[in-house]
Nucleic acid binder design. Structure first.
Lengths: 113, 113
DNA sequence: GAATTATTTTCATAATTCGATAATTATAAA
DNA sequence: TTTATAATTATCGAATTATGAAAATAATTC
């Protein structure tokens, strides 16, 4: 995952409503849930929710598909894995660090200091 | 780590310059490095860097201490661990999830879906 | 086809963010 | 005490972001 993609994803999650939306979608699992139900459960105005869902989708953190007259959103677990992988690889120094996909511009995390 | 703290940290990292600063400090390790050297290496104007360091400090992601006429900044590895722990716990569904520190408002991540 | 439901788009407004420049504070050296 | 170095603070303008209200689009049901 590229640095710019990570920045976009972090920016998307760094907002109260969007983080709540994403967390709710994580709980919903792969089946996802329709925008209207999300709006109800989180008490967010439909237009506001739509704005935030668009941000999350732009960041690659959610996908969507129409089901009847609803549009069902799903958390993009793979994207989140990428974000966490990046942070673990480049912004940590602990044992969870992954040693794959490191390029020459990546930070080389000092271990055990 | 509280949701609001995570949001603050994510917002701090979701900016090109600040992410670069933090990554450089991770590479520097616990010894950290002075603001001036950071500014030189990253080609950021001192005032701009200072602004971003303040943001990172406010988010708890860096600490600082004066050494002579320099101010040395260090990555706050513990804070970063907290952020990754939160994301892993609340925003993932994979095996890295930690099962500790979950409270009743936390998302319960579905596993294996 | 008309009415209904679900969602998105558009628009206006308020608030925040970022980068640049200039001025200020703090430390050290001459 | 003057001078130089290191960093922060203050201020401005441009750009972005968040929110709510109203209008528009899309799919279903009657």
């Amino acid at each position: 995952m590229e640095t710019n993609d990570v920045i976009t994803a972090l920016a998307a999650l760094a907002q109260e409503t969007r983080l709540a939306v994403f967390r709710r979608l994580v709980v919903a699992g792969q089946g996802g849930m329709p925008a209207g139900l999300l709006a109800d459960e989180l008490s967010v105005a439909p237009a506001t929710l739509s704005f935030h869902l668009k941000e999350l989708a732009h960041a690659g953190l959610v996908t969507s598909e129409r089901q009847g007259r609803s549009i069902v959103y799903q958390a993009a677990f793979g994207c989140m894995d990428g974000v966490i992988g990046y942070l673990t690889l480049n912004c940590c120094r602990d044992d969870r660090r992954l040693m794959e996909d490191r390029d020459e511009t990546s930070a080389c995390c000092p271990v055990g200091q």
